[in-house]
Design a binder for these strands. Structure first.
Length: 577
RNA sequence: GGGCGUAUAGCUCAGUUGGAUAGAGCGUCAGCCUCCGGAGCUGAAGGCCACAGGUUCGAAUCCUGUUACGCCCA
């Protein structure tokens, strides 16, 4: 479709040039870009241009008159252009030849799984997401970030971008210290069951109350025995143990969620390598930091932030912000020219200061993009599930995957724009019925296409028989509408990549399935496809239709792949009630 | 008090970056299919695109203000 589009633009450009020359219109008109759009109504053609409307003023002609002059010089009936007409206040509607659609379908089939893949784009992009603190299991909000980030990475890669996905492990700050203290307290409790002479350690005020902490303590006891309890609290030992265990659980869950990172970067490592200190020093040398009340501030207001930000607290402890500066510099040092972070919506106040810090080091603020993902609320039987954070009273991503499956969870997180809060309806999500659950509906769309091929085998037809097909018999409007959708797929991918909106793939997949199911139901008696006991009446037509089915199946599978959702070949029917 | 986000059909949401008569699903109503060729299909009703201005040939979309909700900061 992109090719066709540029071909049409070329045709229009020539016509405009002719009009300008013959009518002595301002030469700048030929410089105007000619935008093509797909009209909402099929009666308005395959494409429409508003060029005449936009250029009327510059041309000092009224829009309809200008449009008519362009229209008169279009080579209608030649090549891709079947028809063109003037409409409304000055639209030019363009209709493609049937051969054009058929050729497009041919190209899509020839491309196979590569249909929609973009040409390589120069530059490397770093995509950081999830980055949940290694202090316990991930909650459902992390899951949404994981789904969005992972799908985005897949889409960007498919669109031709070079992407590295990264998880930043906050293994150095207060939170992991609180975790270690919590584990220690629980661990000593366990030890006292065996050796009552040991003194109890009170549970820390800022501790983690989740039951998993006791499991961690048990694991610590299993590995180290009672010796550490007798030797006294070794914070570094317990912290390292806790982080390792928490991270292992997180990674196991991400694995089941079909999310795999290229790089894990440790905050502690940045500190140990002196990267944080070095960044602070550079800021000091440039006069962009100052001390006040014993704390070290970054002069963020000089770069447009609303206030200066603390990097090192009065007690000498660096803030997460200080480490984040070093971390983002580290990413640039590794050769990325574009950074993209995906954060929870509650972190929005953090964006300005990080961008300002990067500017202080000579980068442009727009080299860091931040995608804010809004919250997820779980809904069951029409009631929202309450979720406390520190209390340990939250639903984990692991629980969600276990109860509604990876595929459905991903679908629910990806089907809506990331900047809208989502109500995750467990009743809908747990339904296996495609009529109730959109995720299952789309998967069924793929399984059905596979079923059609299984039946086609009864007539001895396989995908190999599509080789020489010309698709001249796909003349029904329903068929052509589906072909148009399939041909628009490459552009959709590139748009979704450019605007960082993975949900558009989900919307498209759903629309495509509906169009196909509708078509299938209408034409199955025609017959669209082989059925038991029937003879092959029109081999050419059947092959043409199978070509449509195959291209549909390929595009749908591609969509699902980009969303990280399985495209099953069969599905077991849900129980009828 | 300042900031970010959101506001579209009864409900859940799309809306191709400013185009023509506003789009789906669910629900409602009226039909079709009774099929292992399965897990659906065709229609109808339903809208002041939160409100008020502005920008222009043209606004759900852009700019300003107001209101409501969610979140962050103080």
């Amino acid at each position: 479709m992109l090719q066709i589009k540029s071909e049409l633009q070329e045709i229009l450009k020539n016509a405009v040039a002719q009009v300008v020359a013959e009518e002595h219109l301002p030469a700048e008109l030929t410089e105007r870009p000619i935008t093509l759009e797909v009209p909402k109504l099929p009666e308005h053609g395959d494409f429409a241009t508003t060029f005449a409307l936009a250029a009327a003023k510059q041309a000092r002609r009224n829009p309809r008159e200008l449009a008519q002059k362009i229209l008169d010089r279009l080579p209608v009936g030649q090549g891709v252009l079947k028809g063109a007409e003037l409409a409304g206040p000055g639209f030019i509607n363009l209709r493609l030849s049937d051969a054009c659609l058929a050729d497009g379908l041919r190209r899509a089939l020839d491309a196979g799984d590569a249909w929609g893949r973009g040409a390589p784009v120069p530059g490397r992009i770093n995509l950081e997401f999830v980055s949940a603190n290694p202090t316990g299991p991930m909650h459902v909000g992390h899951g949404r970030g994981a789904a969005v980030g992972d799908a985005l990475a897949r889409i960007l890669r498919f669109a031709g971008r070079e992407v590295v996905t990264e998880y930043y492990v906050n293994d150095a700050g207060r939170q992991v210290s609180h975790l270690a203290a919590s584990i220690w307290s629980r661990y000593v409790d366990l030890c006292r069951e065996q050796d009552p002479s040991l003194a109890a350690v009170p549970f820390p005020e800022d501790g983690y109350h989740g039951g998993y902490v006791v499991d961690f303590a048990r694991a610590f006891l299993a590995r180290h025995g009672l010796a550490p309890a007798r030797a006294g609290y070794d914070a570094a030992l317990v912290k390292a143990f806790g982080v390792e265990l928490a991270l292992a659980e997180i990674r196991a869950t991400l694995d089941q969620f079909n999310v795999h990172f290229d790089v894990f970067t440790s905050e502690a490592t940045l500190h140990d390598a002196g990267a944080v200190t070095r960044a602070m020093e550079l800021l000091r040398e440039r006069g962009l930091s100052y001390e006040q009340d014993g704390a070290l501030f970054f002069a963020a207001t000089r770069f447009g932030d609303e206030k200066d930000r603390v990097m090192i607290r009065a007690n000498g402890e660096p803030t997460y912000f200080a480490a984040d500066i070093a971390y983002h510099l580290d990413k640039f040092a590794r050769g990325f020219d574009q950074l993209m972070d995906i954060w929870g919506a509650d972190h929005h106040g953090y964006i300005a200061r990080v961008k300002c810090a990067l500017e202080a080091f000579g980068y442009r603020q727009d080299q860091l993009g931040v995608l804010l993902v809004q919250f997820v609320a779980l809904v069951n039987q029409g009631e929202k599930l309450a979720m406390g954070k520190r209390s340990g009273n939250f639903v984990t991503l692991q629980d969600l995957i276990d109860t509604v499956s990876c595929d459905v969870t991903r679908w629910f997180f990806l089907a809506k724009t990331h900047d809208v809060a989502v109500d995750f309806d467990l009743e809908v999500a747990t339904s296996a019925d495609p009529r109730e659950n959109p995720a299952r509906y789309v998967q069924y769309g793929h399984a059905r296409a596979c079923a059609i091929w299984r039946r086609a085998a009864a007539w001895g037809l396989t995908p190999a028989d599509l080789a020489g097909a010309r698709f001249a018999k796909l003349t029904a409007p329903e068929e052509q509408a589906i072909v148009r959708m399939l041909l628009s797929y490459p552009e959709l991918v590139s748009d979704a990549a450019a605007s960082f909106t993975p949900h558009r793939l989900a919307t498209f997949a759903l629309d495509l399935c509906r169009a196909f199911h509708s078509y299938y139901t209408r034409f199955k008696d025609d017959p669209i496809l082989p059925r038991a006991g029937a003879a092959l009446a029109d081999r050419e037509k059947t092959i043409d239709r199978l070509g449509l089915v195959e291209a549909y199946r390929t595009v749908l599978r591609s969509c699902l792949n980009l969303l990280g959702i399985n495209a099953p070949e069969t599905m077991t029917a849900p129980e009828e009630e």
